[in-house]
Design a protein around this nucleic acid. Structure first.
Lengths: 201, 201, 201, 201
DNA sequence: GATGAATGAGCATTCATTCAT
DNA sequence: CATGAATGAATGCTCATTCAT
């Protein structure tokens, strides 16, 4: 998942250390409130090094976000490959999100708060391309089941909120500590609700 | 809905002008990035005046947020009063949110981005009380229908994400300009999906 | 010569103190190399105050430059008023420059090094207007003597370099300490040379 | 004119490429504002290489300046060799400067802005020696005509400002784009003015 | 000779907040 | 209640310079 060839595969390398330090800081303090100095402290590198590699806080946040969203997306597409009907597909969307968030809550918290990030134009473009590719693949996957009559025919832009909205909402709740029931204990409920919301009758 | 006795009901007064200016600034620049100076410019008042009335930027944001959330909540409870069964109640939750966001998008955008606000302890306490009162009333309203078997029996903390998650997700999409289809054109779809997700079979 | 109404005529006021401190710093260290901190130290004010009044180093330099050039120009026009023929006018241009530079060498040094200043667009516009007004007046004054045949008819843009170039060149030399002979001791030589360069034969 | 023995006369070599890149940068951005990084970009070399050859930005600027001034001076002495009287000599000083500036405006612009350069002590010493040698030769050349009574007897330090000041002033004007009339079109005017300013009557 | 990652002192700038008028 | 000059801690960022490879 590393986005650039590393000169040395053995050591984690400055780049990776900075990314990890930044994620921890963002998670504790929020992206906006985190200072370059805090990241520098935690990564144990110099300010110059940080700028050399990422060009600033936004650069770090962008790299982190793009890596994270790419991993989340790739995981879903892999799991959809093993599904053979609409219900499995819908449930997988919900369950994969719950699993992924449970496994890496810091990164999840970061992605969820991403609204604060001021992406540079290039990062913005890269993100847009990633989204288009991903949602293109997802819609292609589900399209046949809608055509076949297994799923309701709905305005296209409503499928994602209907299927993923509730589990994302609950994940936000859990990530922020406002509920203690783990995601995995309720993910089946959300999977069931999602399927009921879009299945054809 | 005004939270403090006003010395003069006729004039909008400094207080209100500042709140309006702040909302516009928050909407354009984001809460964190908005400076006192920008609010001052727009409100046409002095820095001192702003501090006199609200004690700082967070004070303005808190007042705005509490007024907004109170209005949103009160509206829902009023409309639930006119409902007589579970399906009407569930649909009303979705439709009221869609209506309210459509009528005051700036305020909605502000509430949605509220994560950035650093509420003072008192404001935090006031908010908590408001939420408890509100959700207590809402759960009381729906409780009998669950007991009566009209709605599924689910883990309590999942009802709100399941019913409101999708429309809130879509509202975020629309408020940020990433979709052009107005909320009212799809709110029926979300109301239907919500009801299907929680109705008993 | 103060460019803004002062709230208090008795005290020099922060504004003026900052200008004086800045001139001293610019003179010792050069505009580019002078730091805000140095000006702040010398003026005995806070950083915020400096920004409040001038918006940064360039703002201070602009104000200083505009005040200085205005004073230099105004003095010349006043002295030209007392001249009644071309020779007196030409000599006055040279002698006034020499006198002015001798009287306020720090300010002169600053004006001469002004190339380094990064004027804000507004300051640039104000300067342009000042130059146009000044040189308009000067050319009007001399115009009749050219028409009358007292002075050579030359390409218009060559008069100023020919008349003022030598004394300005020498002033630069003297201001930088590369010659020790005071301006006043040689200004008659330059006045004579200037007149010989442009007089009609 | 190369100042160090080159290992290879055929290729322009890193050294020359860096000098050319630096001149272009200095011309566009000014010496003080140009960064090592910009020069590196343009020269297509590494930072290390730049330091290896010149020891830093000032080193590049010094080399450029010394090469430039040497070329300008040498050209004048060559042309003075062909002159046989005072008037020809004076006119040549003016015309040579105009020609040289016209032929290499970027280098001329750089020499004119040289005030910003922070020469190293050795460079400073080398420059001083160059100036002494040059002006010694020039004064020797002109000396006999002053003694012979062809030129006015003036304070020695005023000759250069009087003869060269106007054309240098105009060159600055033209190099900065504030006048559009080419130097060659007015250089005769300045040559004439210079001669009139110093000729004996 | 060439490379470029690493360094960190140094600087400009912002902005919330105070308080005398 | 209103004003806005004054404050200065906090922060982002630049850029010359070093040095191991």
């Amino acid at each position: 998942m590393s986005r650039r060839g590393q000169p040395n595969l053995a050591t984690p390398g400055r780049r990776q250390m900075i990314l990890e330090a930044a994620l921890a800081c963002f998670d504790e303090t929020g992206v906006a409130a985190t200072t370059i100095e805090q990241i520098r402290d935690r990564a144990g590198c110099s300010i110059g090094s940080l700028y050399h590699h990422f060009g600033g806080k936004e650069g770090v946040a962008s790299a982190l976000f793009i890596d994270g969203i790419s991993d989340l997306n790739a995981g879903l597409l892999r799991r959809l490959d093993d599904c053979s009907n609409a219900e499995q597909g819908v449930r997988t969307c919900v369950l994969h999100y719950a699993d992924w968030v449970t496994r890496q809550p810091e990164l999840a918290r970061f992605l969820v708060h991403a609204r604060e990030i001021n992406f540079a134009p290039e990062a913005r473009a890269e993100l847009k391309a990633i989204y288009q590719r991903h949602f293109g693949a997802v819609f292609t996957w589900f399209g046949r089941f809608v055509l076949r009559g297994d799923m309701k025919q709905l305005p296209p832009e409503t499928y994602i909120p209907i299927i993923s909205g509730p589990i994302e909402d609950y994940a936000r709740l859990w990530l922020s500590g406002r509920t203690r029931t783990p995601l995995v204990e309720v993910s089946e409920v959300f999977a069931e609700a999602a399927w009921n919301a879009v299945r054809a009758r």
